[in-house]
Structures are given as C-alpha cells and as structure tokens.
C-alpha cells in the first residue's frame, strides 16, 4: 500500500476487525517499523531512526489518543497532561508546563478537576484529559485509535467535537482509526482497509 497524508488533512482509517487498522496506525506513528517499505513523518524516514530517535520525534511532532484513554494512573489530570512537556523540557517556548497544561484542561472543560486522579474521573472525562495531553506539545500530527470506542454516544460526540475543534484551531494533521461510520463521515478522507490492503481511499479516488 502507498498512502500520503497531507499536512492538516483529516483522514479516517476504517475497516472490519483484523483488517490491519491498528497495525497501520502503529507503523504510521513510528511505534513499530515495517519489515519492508518505509514510513516518513514530516520528511523524516522513520526506518533510518533508532528507537530512541523515533521516541524523540514522537515527543516533538506526534500526539496520541487511545481507545482506552491510557492515562497514567499514578498521576493527576494535570500531571498527565504535563508529561510530554516535562519529558523534553519545553517550558521556555510556551510558558510553564503547569500553566500550559491547565489552560488546555480548561479548554476541554476540566479546569476544576486538575488535581483528580484518573480513577476519580469518568470515561468521558478521562478521554478529555487524554485529548489535552495529545495537544499539549502542539504536535504536527495526531493519531487517534478508536477515540470513542469506550464511550457512550453522548460522551463520544463531545469528544469528537472537541477533537475536531482543537484540530482545526491548532492546524494539526489528524489520522483516526474507527469503527464508527458516523465519525468516519466527518473526515475529509476515508481509507478503507480489508485483509491488510486498501479497499478504497476517497483521497485518491480522483
């Protein structure tokens, strides 16, 4: 397969279970390297980077939203959001990590729950913390893996709205894996996988 995703594009990857969606996402995000072929992010060939260099690249340019939220249970909401900033000490460029993280949490409507631990938050709230964490380092590209998969309809749509709004505001490229046709419909481009191959791609249909 051959996929190009443009800057600021919003692409959804859909397909039945086992079609390779998550594998593709993992490869695109540099969480794994392909046995053959290559992946580049922002012009950098991931194959040529070491594991730790890929980690640095992720810290700098990539954001993640997971189906199961993946907040660190021992950290408060605020501390969870601060992690990407603290990892590489980006305080000078955009104010103190604490201020930046709390303003993002306010942005997702959790300004009053900064000190809460993940276990004290509902699923929807946890995913909103995860969104704040994903955007806190102003990534060039955001990968979202079934972001609404573990949420009810109501919470799901809140998350999707937030995701789309913040994506637009921060001019981020968004790659989203989902089962949900309604969510996929909101994407500019839909890539459909079947059995590990691209079955259709609205971006190259022309």
């Amino acid at each position: 397969m051959d996929i190009d995703i443009e800057e600021r594009e919003f692409a959804a990857i859909i397909g039945p279970s086992g079609s390779g969606k998550t594998t593709l996402l993992g490869l695109l995000a540099g969480l794994d390297v392909p046995a053959t072929g290559s992946v580049s992010i922002d012009g950098q060939d991931l194959n040529k980077l070491t594991e730790d260099q890929r980690a640095s690249l992720r810290a700098e340019k990539v954001g993640f939203v997971f189906q199961s939220f993946q907040l660190i249970p021992t950290l408060t909401a605020l501390e969870n959001v601060m992690v990407p900033l603290e990892l590489y000490d980006r305080s000078e460029s955009s104010g103190s990590p604490g201020k930046r993280a709390s303003s993002l949490l306010e942005r997702v409507g959790l300004g009053d729950r900064l000190g809460h631990y993940p276990i004290q938050l509902s699923g929807g709230e946890q995913q909103r913390v995860a969104l704040a964490r994903a955007f806190v380092n102003e990534p060039k590209i955001l990968f979202a893996d079934e972001p609404t998969g573990n949420l009810d309809m109501e919470n799901g749509s809140v998350i999707v709205d937030l995701l789309m709004t913040m994506n637009r505001e921060l001019a981020t490229t968004l790659v989203l894996v989902t089962h949900d046709p309604a969510l996929a419909d909101r994407a500019a481009r839909v890539i459909r996988l079947e059995g590990g191959r691209i079955a259709s791609d609205s971006g190259v249909s022309a």
Partner: peptide, 16 residues
C-alpha cells in the same frame, strides 16, 4: 508496563 508503554508513546526514551 502500561504506564511505561504510554510514556514511550509520548516520546520518552528508554534511558529516561
């Protein structure tokens, strides 16, 4: 292990 995987996803390097 979960926490470690998340930290790695967020760009933490092995030595960190």
């Amino acid at each position: 292990l979960d926490t470690i995987a998340v930290l790695r996803c967020l760009g933490a390097r092995h030595p960190t």
